[in-house]
Design a protein around this nucleic acid. Sequence first.
DNA 1: ATGTCGGCAAAATGCCGA
Length: 258
Amino acid sequence: MKLATWNVNGINARLPLLLRWLEESMPDVVCLQELKAPDAKFPHEALTDAGYGALWRGQPSWNGVAILARGAQPIEIRRELPGDPSDTEARYLEAAVEGMIVASIYLPNGNPQPGPKFDRKLRWFERMNRHAQSLWDTGLPVVLAGDWNVVPTDDVADIYATRSWHDDALLQPEPRAAWQALLAQGWVDAIRHLHPDEPLYTFWDYLRQRWPRNAGLRIDHLLLSEPLAQVLAGAGVDRDVRGWEHASDHAPVWVTFD
DNA sequence: ATGTCGGCAAAATGCCGA
């Protein structure tokens, strides 16, 4: 069983690469973020032809999340993060699939900080953590997967040696504290659990030759509840996908379970 | 400030968000 998450940065712009990656990587379950497409423009048929059932929540221009399953149809649990009816952005989708509860998450970026967008990021994170606790308390196998827009530490394992991002919303103490509070609920950060010290970046900005210089950040994360942590077998980043022509600025991140 | 993307309104160039 292989489960992956990928911020595709435009599912229609990225469709040929998505199909190629699905064929080569053969994930059983996939969480996608940044569809940048309204519901009506989700490439449902192409994914059906590729053998994947899909559940999606789009919106014009920005955001958008989806959950795919090879040879199966994810069953929707919810398409909104509880706690704020005024939040209409497509950033959360939760489904039952392959005996698990799987959430596809696109946490607000929060730049510039300080400011209202940063405040909104922190509030969204608090809502996420409240809901995560309720999921944890079920005792069920749960995966929280997505673009969390937080670099957990300044260690070279999480971000290249630089001060360029010092004032960025992705590195601030508040979202990092929220991330630590989430981990304190018991969730296992799959990549870091299996690769404690290895630099495993998931995002390289399009600007300033960040990919050729391997100037990356680790911001796409897979969190596992206890039953899945018990059967965690492998975790990694499909780095080469970032080097493909016309790539997303994020690479797919995956876990395997026994 | 700058650099690069994708989507979109509007009418091919410019803006927003990242």
